[in-house]
Amino acid sequence: MHDPARRLPGEGVFSLLLTGISLFLFYQATQISGFEALSAPGSFPLFSTGCMVITSALVALRTLRLPHSEEHGWQAILPGFVIFMTVLMLFYALALKPVGFLPTSFVFLLIATKVMMRTSIARAALIAALSLILVYVVFRLVFSVLMPEGIVPERELISAMRRLLSGGAE
């Protein structure tokens, strides 16, 4: 949908932002080791950030000269759902460590499904639970990835269950 001959809302700001970031990173690169030798740890970062500065500036100059696009408003760039999901993920990431993986993920899936599907809470909860069980079995049980536990004492529960099972087997 991107039309190279028109400037979308926010495109100019974005290109300026990238130029700013590039300049900042270039400055950081000069601080690593200076220009002391061809093999210095800072030489390659200077090259890569230098390329970023030049290209981002070229893009910004070109973009700012383009006429505004009339077809697309902000609505097309950032529809409600995209903003909503981004904010939801941000909250998810912040809550993950203190609250723990299981409750946070369940709430995340529940809200996302409920809002996007416009369905009943019960149905959304069922879908969320099924998705979560799938992810949990694959990552935690099969691949032993220890996600942040938070408020649910997962490791104790699993250990207790394993003991129960092996106790039953003996």
Partner: peptide, 27 residues
């Protein structure tokens, strides 16, 4: 339905990013 698929993909992305090096920073 995308309403089922995309939340799941996003969750997988988060868990997957964490799993690489067990680091929340990666998330």
């Amino acid at each position: 339905p995308r309403a089922v698929l995309f939340p799941l993909i996003l969750l997988l992305s988060i868990v997957g990013a964490f799993a690489v090096n067990n680091s929340i920073i990666d998330v």
